[in-house]
Design a protein around this nucleic acid. Structure first.
Lengths: 74, 74
DNA sequence: TCTAAATGTAAAAAATACTTTACATAAAGA
DNA sequence: TCTTTATGTAAAGTATTTTTTACATTTAGA
């Protein structure tokens, strides 16, 4: 699949939500802390399900947490 | 990760968009037809990127195409 | 200074998403 | 009837996501 760019504001959102730690977020969504680290740092993007779970923790829609921009495809 | 349920209305949306075929949708988002079949039939859910791409084709937000419901986690 | 908590990195293994190839069926039209 | 188009299934292989384990660094507080 051609690749666009997915970004997120998880880090910011954690701090805006009572300084939630990576560990706390990981526990709330049911993954390991390493998974949160990798996503925050952009090593890879989460599965659709995990993206939904994370947005849910912050009481936001998925698209308020993750944004996508297409690459050029002429 | 604990699993919730992700569903989608791709099939309906294809018909509402000029009876777009699976093949056409696949080409527009840059995957094979089998991938579209599998997602429509719920064999697995797409990556976050593919979900964004599909929503984009229909000019909808991701959450208008895919919905997520949490399992019970008491 | 010692300890604990939060964050970062890395590597191997497991799980899931996606591709490729191939074949089957049903419906529509020449 | 013959052909084409749309859809479905399946299996093997590749790519990506997630887990597990382990260790390093920084900061805050006792």
């Amino acid at each position: 699949m051609r690749k666009g760019l997915i970004s997120n504001n998880i880090r910011t959102l954690r701090f805006h939500h009572d300084e939630m730690t990576q560990k706390q977020l990981a526990e709330k969504v049911g993954v390991t802390r390493q998974t949160i680290v990798a996503i925050e740092k952009g090593k890879y993007s989460p599965s659709l399900e995990l993206a939904f779970r994370i947005a849910h923790v912050f009481n936001l829609s998925l698209e308020e947490v993750f944004s996508f921009s297409l690459e050029d495809e002429t």
